[in-house]
Every structure is written in C-alpha cells, then in structure tokens.
Write a protein that binds this DNA or RNA. Sequence first.
DNA 1: GATGAATGAGTGTTCATTCAT
DNA 2: AATGAATGAACACTCATTCAT
Lengths: 196, 196, 196, 196
Amino acid sequence: MPEGITARRQQAEQRRAQLIDTALAVFAEKGVEAATVKDLSETAGVAQGLLYHYFRSKEDLLQAALERHYFLPELRRIVSPNRDRPAGEVLLEVAQSFAALLHEHRPLLQVMIREAPSNPAVADRVERARREGVRLLAEYLDSRVAAGELRPHDTEAAARLLLYAAFMANLTDTPTDRFLPAVVDSILWGIHARPS
Amino acid sequence: MPEGITARRQQAEQRRAQLIDTALAVFAEKGVEAATVKDLSETAGVAQGLLYHYFRSKEDLLQAALERHYFLPELRRIVSPNRDRPAGEVLLEVAQSFAALLHEHRPLLQVMIREAPSNPAVADRVERARREGVRLLAEYLDSRVAAGELRPHDTEAAARLLLYAAFMANLTDTPTDRFLPAVVDSILWGIHARPS
Amino acid sequence: MPEGITARRQQAEQRRAQLIDTALAVFAEKGVEAATVKDLSETAGVAQGLLYHYFRSKEDLLQAALERHYFLPELRRIVSPNRDRPAGEVLLEVAQSFAALLHEHRPLLQVMIREAPSNPAVADRVERARREGVRLLAEYLDSRVAAGELRPHDTEAAARLLLYAAFMANLTDTPTDRFLPAVVDSILWGIHARPS
Amino acid sequence: MPEGITARRQQAEQRRAQLIDTALAVFAEKGVEAATVKDLSETAGVAQGLLYHYFRSKEDLLQAALERHYFLPELRRIVSPNRDRPAGEVLLEVAQSFAALLHEHRPLLQVMIREAPSNPAVADRVERARREGVRLLAEYLDSRVAAGELRPHDTEAAARLLLYAAFMANLTDTPTDRFLPAVVDSILWGIHARPS
DNA sequence: GATGAATGAGTGTTCATTCAT
DNA sequence: AATGAATGAACACTCATTCAT
C-alpha cells in the first residue's frame, strides 16, 4: 500500500509544519524561555509528548522554526536591484520591499532578535543576513557610482543607513508609508539647503 | 545617635547600589529570565535571602536597576543642541555623543531591548526615551530649517535616521569612527551626484 | 487451507521467539527498567506497536523471556548424578557442568538476579531453582554417605558450598578452570594438614 | 555568634545524614531506578527541592550513601586475623564476623549488587572490596600453611569459598548459625571419609 | 500482521520566594 | 543586617501504552 504510506508521511509532514508554525507564534508572543512546552502543545492542540515525537527538544523545535521560516534568499533578491536602473528610482522600492519582507516575517524576527544574545546559533543567522544584505546593497550603490549617477561616497554606510532605517521602523512599529520616502529623499539629496 | 543611624543608612544605600549594579551586569550577560537569584547573590557575594531584604522580588530588582541607570536627562541634553549652531557643525557631535552614551550604558540597553517585548514597564521606558529623543532632535532641525541652513524636509524622519543609525551601530557592535561621519555626510548632502 | 494457517502460525511463533530473544539481550545489557520499549523494538528491527501485538506489556515480555529460557530441567539433571558413582569422581563434573550451564544462560541470570528483589514472580523462580538444586545435590551426597564414601556431615551445607562457589564464579567473571578443581579438592579433602 | 553558626552547620550535617539514610533504605527497598525523588523526599518528610539543596542529583545522593556507609575498613580487619592464631580456631570467627558485617549493611549491599551492572562507580567499589577481602584472607591462609597447620593448597580459592558462602547466605537469607560451622568444617577437614 | 502517530501520567530537576535563627 | 535551610510549584522531557490506518 504505497499510497497509504505516502499519505501517512504527508500527514506527518503537515503535522510537523503545524507544530512549527504554532510554536513560532507562541515563541514570538511570549519569548522562547517563557514559552512552556505546555503552551506550545496546548496552542497546537496536541499532547505534550507529541512534540517530542517530532522534535528532540524545545531548542530543536526553535531551530526548525528558524530553518523553515528563514528568508535569506528573498532578502538577497530584494537588495540586489538591476544595476542599470537608477538609484533615484530603485532605492525606495528596495526600502519598501525590505520593510514588507520584515513585516511579513515579524514573528521570526522578534524571536531572532530576542534570542540572539543568548543563542549563538541564532546570532549567527542574524549576523550573516545583516552582513550579506548590507554587502549586496553596497555593491549596487558602487555600480551606480561607477555609472556616474551617484557621487563617490561610503556606499556601505549608505546601505546600512537605508536598511537600518527600515529595520528600526519595523522594530518600533512605525508606519513606513511616509517614513521611507523621507528616508530615501534624505539619503539621496541630503537635507542641507543648496546655494541656488 | 543620629550619626550612627545615618552611617547605617549610607551603608544600606551602598549595599543596595552594589546589589543593583551586579544584578544589571548579570541580567545583561545572561538575560533576565535566565539569571537565577542564586547567580545574582553569588555574583554579589551575599546570601540569596539578602536580596529579599532589599528588594521585594527579582522583578523589583530589575526595575530598581532600570531606575538607577536610566539616562533620559543625558539623552535630552545631547539631542538638544544650541539652536544657533549650524547643523553642519552640530550633527556629527550629536551622533557621536549619542553613540558614546549608548556605549556607556550598554548593559542597561541590552536588558531593556530584550525585556521590552514581554515587560510593559520596560517597553514604556524605551518608547518614552525614543519618542523624546526623536522629538527634541527634530525640533532642532526645524529651527535650522527656519534659520535657512537646512532645506524644508521631514525633520522627524531625518532625526530618526540619525539616531537609529547610531543605535544600530551600537546594537551590531559596529565601530562608529568611520560610520557616523559617513552617515552625517549622507544625510546632510545626499549621495546623489550634482549637476556641476 | 490448514497448511497456510500452520505456516502463518509458525511464522508468528518465529517472530515471537525473535522478539523474546532480542528483548532478553537488551534486558540483560541495560536492565529491565532502563530498557525502553523503543530500545526493544529498534533492536528487533520492528515498530513499537508490534510488541503489543505479541505481548500484553513489557512485563509480559519479560515473563515470556524467563519462560522461554528457563533451564530448571537441565539443572536438575546436572545436580543428580548417578548415585553409584563416587563423589571423588563426580563432584568436579557437577561443578563444571553447572558452571557451563550458568555461563550459557548468562543473560537470563543477569536479568533474574537484578529483577528478583523487586519482582516476586522472578524471585519465586530463582528461589525454586536454588532450593531444588541444593536438595538434589544434597540427596546425592546423602547417598554417598550411606555408601560409606563420604563421612557423615551436613550434606545440604556442602551442596550449597559447591553450587554457590560456581555461581559466584559466574557472577564475578572468575575463570573456573583452576578455581573449581581447587574448590572440589577443598570440600572433599579439607585444607587442614593431616597427622601423617 | 560562632555558636549559632556551628549549630546551624551541625543541624545541616544531621539533615544530610538523615536524607542519606532514608534514601539508602528506599533505594534498597525499591531499587534505585524505581525509587522516585518523591519517594525519597516523602520518606524523609521534606520537600523534594530540599534534596537538591544537599545533593546535586539523585545519582549524587546514591554516591553519598555508598560513601557514608562504606565498610571496607571493617572488612579488612575482619579478614586479617592474627597470623599466629590457628585456622581451626579462627576461620569460624572470620566467617561469622563477615556474615554479621554483611547483615549489618544489608541495605547497602542490596543496592550495590543491583546497581553494579549498570553503574561503573558502584561496580568498582564492589570489585575492589571483593578482591581485597579475598587477598587478605588468602594471605592469612598462606601464613598458616607456612606455619604447618594447613596443608599446601590453593589458598585464594579457599578464601573465596569461605567468603562466597557467607555472602550467598546473606543474599539468600539463609540463617548462618548452622550453615557457617558446617562450611568451615567442610573446608577444614573435607567431607571425604578417612581410612581409620 | 504491522506501522508509527498520539497520548498522558510521571520523571528528575530548577528556582523564586519564605522563614527561623 | 544577614544567612542559608526549606518550600512547592513549575519546568522540560520520557516512556509504556493505545489506536487509526
């Protein structure tokens, strides 16, 4: 009965995914330490023991959640715009897409940020994503400098400035619709008055 | 013997301060939840029971630590430059002083950031400081717009941009000596090329 | 199709035997309490649930193992030598055969000895075997006293002495090739010097 | 108040001893694995948590019990009779003292014997005691051979024979008052008839 | 017959807090 | 003021057993 076996496996896979997703929600709401296994199992509507059928430990469940919801590839795409498109057109898109990505993965981010200081595995993921995001966006800016659109400047600092702004907007629950355009405007054109 | 009583009070005050300071260090290192009362008392070199002589609970000790190390006044001063001084001269100073302040209070910050999501009392303090810092700096920028030095712009967004950059530099352990000048340069003058 | 049914039964019986044998090995290695049903099923290469198809419980499986590997008949034969044969010739044979029997059933013995204190069913089996072994050997010695080969003495004590020695050799992993002849020599002739 | 401090310490030491003693009793009755920490604390009349104030773990408590009740020194004394005294007079004393010692430490022995197979630390203690007991008694027998009282023989085997007999009597709950004299008689003089 | 997902009671252990001294 | 013994409610985790497939 290969069909039966496959069905069972699929069901198990679904159950695993469900457990991970509810766990992530609970972790985000209460914090990993404060979330008890009882919380996790009750929220998922299963017995405590079942969690240990699918995961070796609470920590293992956390890692599985990080793995399942990780979004480095999307991040990479977002911060790597086509190098022929002008920054004046592209930067706001980047900021908004990045903010949308963060918003979409809010529970994961909350968990990662809180756990990073005490969990090296988490800290690693955070740091890797941060570094790569900054690097890719800086490379795009470099290309725009080379194209003559942007003046020579510390492109890594500028990349950071943009990404950190979107990140902090997410962290502090600031609406981005007015903030991000203003941010991009400042970075691109500066706030200093010009001699006419 | 009023002197004896005063001496006692002073000693008690000292002991209290010592307990708070070691507690803050332990909280920062391990996280509040993970730091046990045994950790706290052992690090302070006293018996567990003594903590409950000075504080009603572990949570109370945490609040006392936040109270004792709070730095809103310094923050206010830093983000309120003399409104007659030009932004071109002042903004880097502000960014660097702010970064230095954050660096000085790193343990407190680590604790506050981690605890805020699950501790409304902490979240309040964070939010209040953030809002006030942004407001004051934005007001300064407003005054420089009025003075004609800066062009009209979303001054709150610009204030945020600067403060968030310094804050994230602290959070991600980035050295500020090159980063902050580049940040201020971007914000002031923009990164776009100028028609000569 | 009686043949089909018989074939099925045989297969089931084989499976049952296999489960018992691997269980006994695991019980002996880890101890009954410490051996989990997962250990047992994994070692047998089957799913956990299958064990409950063949046995009502872990305890039931243990009892089945004791039943299947019980060796009281062999023990009886070994400690009941032909009463016409002289002890000087027979006792070493008895000791060696008994030691070989114990060695052959080492896993079972390990399990029984450890479980006896907390499992009356096991304790009963042990006690019954012990008593019967001693009784039969003592009866043989009685007959040799009657035959005039042995002097009148506490034959039950002597029987115990011999059997306990072999048993302890097994328990303490002592090689028996030198030990048992020395034991028999002592018991038969004593270690005291003789007036020549 | 040095007296107060000392009193506290003494009380703590007493409490520790009480916990160890009740634990040993419970371990002996139910077996170490089967004895729950709840059993232990309830029998001692204290809260579960208190056990962990005095011992790091259940295993640690077990080791403390083995340590506190260990009786190797007494064993050494018992199996090292004065070498000038004749074996005919001494061996029964040795056997009876040894049996009394085992009887006195019955709970400890039950625990050690059951735990040895799965607990190397315990197995070590058992093995060390066994080896040393045999060695010392064999040395005494050697000296009696040298003195001409005993005939040359495998003294180690004889020592084992005597000690194992007493040990097994203890294990099987056999009364020793008739058994041990018969054992010593057999070993000393043999059970074979003599040509008159 | 055979699987392995699912259960739920129970385990050893931790820890903030209390209290007698 | 200061100690540390003592508590008891939680905690993460285990495991024999059941059951739908």
